[in-house]
Computed example of a mutant assay.
Amino acid sequence: MYNRNGNKMFEFHTVPHSEVGKTSVNLVSVAVIKDTIMVGDWKRLVITKHRSSDGSLIDTVTVQTKPWYLAIDSKDRVVVSGSSQQQVDIVGVDGGTLISIYPKINSQQVKYCTGVCCDSSAIYIAVRNGDCNTGHIHRYDTQGRFLSCIAQGLHSPHGISLTSDGQQLAVADWESVKIYNKV
């Protein structure tokens, strides 16, 4: 954990101290909810919850979808994007899948669900059909219903985020970053 000045404050582990060095992990995603840091572990199919003040392990929640990408929605639920698992799950902070989203492009199940982010009324998901230049950004309501396609023809979108004012969407599209204005 680093402070705003870039100084290291502390390190923390995603397994109990007795398991450090004994348990294999693959940490690939992170999201913050209030004073809790959520870390996605692809290998163990879990999300670990940590205190932001010292990194201490609060809980470990098992998930069905590999947590390649994480976001927190306006209802304090964890949105888990599973990459090649072709789905996005909305999970309660104490575990358990509440809603599963299976994005489609042209009525066909997508091959990859990558980056996710949320605002107060929607969930944004980066998807693609495997080949380059098939990437889309889709917008869903908080119940997982498709609302619109925001962008298409992207090379290979991965990380996505809204700006702090919520008026623009930034998309890491392989070798470039694209910014979309909210309309």
Rank of each mutant, 00 (worst) to 15 (best):
D89N: 15
M1G: 08
L70E: 06
V91T: 08
V15E: 03
H13I: 00
K34W: 02
F12P: 02
V30A: 12
I33V: 14
V28A: 05
I37T: 01
T60M: 14
V93L: 14
A71C: 05
V93Y: 07
T36I: 13
H17I: 08
H13K: 11
F10E: 01
V20L: 04
S81F: 13
N106F: 03
I72Y: 10
I101G: 08
V28H: 05
Q85N: 11
V80N: 07
D76R: 14
Q87Y: 01
V79P: 08
T14P: 00
V46Y: 04
K22F: 04
H17G: 05
S83N: 15
T36W: 01
M1F: 10
Q86Y: 01
N3E: 06
Y102P: 03
V28G: 04
R44F: 05
G21L: 09
D54I: 01
G21D: 06
T23V: 14
S53M: 00
P67R: 11
L98F: 02
V46I: 13
V93C: 03
Y2P: 03
S29P: 06
K104N: 12
Q85W: 09
T36N: 05
Q108W: 02
V30N: 07
N3F: 03
V88E: 01
I99P: 02
V78C: 10
V110Y: 12
I47D: 04
S83G: 06
Y102R: 15
V20T: 10
G21A: 02
P16W: 00
I33T: 11
K22C: 00
M1Q: 08
T62M: 07
Q86V: 01
Y69H: 15
T14Y: 00
H50M: 00
L98A: 11
T65F: 02
R51S: 02
A31D: 00
S29N: 13
S52R: 07
I47C: 10
V39Y: 01
K49T: 11
T14M: 00
Q85D: 15
G92F: 13
V39L: 12
V28W: 06
I99T: 14
K66W: 07
N7M: 09
D94I: 05
R51K: 09
S84F: 04
S29M: 13
V91M: 03
S52A: 13
V20R: 02
T14H: 05
R4L: 15
V30R: 00
F10T: 01
K49L: 15
W68F: 12
G40P: 07
P103H: 14
T60G: 07
V91H: 08
W42A: 15
H13S: 06
I37N: 01
L27C: 13
K8Y: 06
D35F: 00
D89R: 02
R44C: 04
N7R: 12
G6L: 06
F10H: 01
V20I: 15
G95M: 05
K75V: 05
Y69C: 09
Q87K: 12
E19L: 14
T62D: 08
S24D: 08
S56Q: 11
D94G: 15
Q109P: 13
K22E: 10
R44E: 14
S18M: 04
Q109V: 13
L27Y: 09
S53H: 03
G21C: 09
V78Q: 05
V30T: 10
